[in-house]
Amino acid sequence: MPQPGEDLRGYVIERTLGRGGSATVFLARRPGDPAPVALKVLNPDQRNPEARHRLERAFVLTGQIDHPHVVSEYELGPDWIAMQYVDGGNVTALTETADRLAALAQIADALDHAHRLGIVHCDVKPANILVHQDFSKGGAVLIDFGVAHVLAEDMARRLARDGGHRLSLDPARRITRQAAAPPTTVLASLPYAAPELLLGRMPSGSTDQYSLACTAVELLTGTPPFTAETADQLVDAHLHEPPPRFAPRIPGLPHAFDTVVATALMKEPDARHDSCTELVELLQRVLR
């Protein structure tokens, strides 16, 4: 792994921003360029075809989406990706309910935009929503499309035909390694995973709405809607248990909150709200 002061393909490492099971994120910049970037580098024990594929896939799909609240990714390397640096941590760093609702609204708009392009994120959770330190200016940013699903078959064929990336990408986005075709499996973070993902069914925009609702519940009540001691119990809760009622145990929370959340967490995708934006607009209305 690179160390502070070292050079990685023209990026000088300044410091470590965070470490995860699969990758480490560094603050870095190119000499002479005042704007820093976040450099996500796969950990040495994770440099396998599957992890590289997810890294490449995130770069490919964010290149298809032009939205102010979707992360900008600039360059793809063999085991790393250079992307927009967002300096405020993840969305849990926001302390005001109004700011958390505003962040949810921005991410809902980004998700609906992606859905219109036939792209389902499939891993919406607080850790994948970053915020600018000056939230009123920069807002929230959705990251990590590494396990996203492309709904439109013609888009998937075009991605595969073009080697995994659009030939019309902005010249500023440099590709050092050719991106691969879309994956055939979908991964998910269990506390936020929609039932259809857990059952191996085709995801849709409603899949992201379910995960956004789980995220909203965590941000507004302190915990995601379903918790369990084991992964099997958590999967069973998503598949079979009704959403818990929060209003009776959280002072000041209106019963209408439970109604809005319950619809977003319906087991059948078609029974949920019409869009992510509708979900958040209803939450904003009942929490005024």
Rank of each mutant, 00 (worst) to 15 (best):
13 I>M: 07
195 P>C: 11
195 P>K: 12
20 G>Y: 02
72 S>L: 05
283 L>H: 03
236 D>H: 15
44 P>R: 10
80 W>V: 02
259 T>L: 12
9 R>N: 13
141 V>N: 02
63 G>R: 01
129 I>G: 02
237 A>E: 07
54 R>G: 00
164 G>T: 08
18 G>V: 01
3 Q>T: 13
253 L>M: 15
204 S>K: 05
116 R>S: 12
229 E>F: 07
174 R>M: 07
120 V>N: 01
76 L>C: 10
157 R>Y: 14
253 L>Y: 06
199 L>E: 15
200 G>Y: 10
141 V>A: 02
63 G>F: 07
73 E>H: 00
199 L>A: 12
164 G>H: 05
76 L>T: 02
83 M>T: 04
238 H>M: 08
260 V>Y: 04
278 E>W: 04
21 G>L: 05
215 T>Y: 06
144 D>V: 04
213 A>Q: 09
187 L>T: 15
192 Y>G: 04
173 R>P: 03
139 G>W: 00
151 L>S: 14
169 L>Q: 11
109 D>Y: 03
242 P>Y: 06
270 D>T: 11
66 D>M: 08
151 L>E: 14
145 F>G: 00
195 P>Q: 09
224 P>Q: 05
5 G>P: 06
47 R>N: 03
174 R>K: 14
91 V>D: 05
183 P>H: 14
153 E>H: 12
130 L>H: 03
3 Q>K: 15
35 A>F: 08
240 H>S: 12
194 A>G: 07
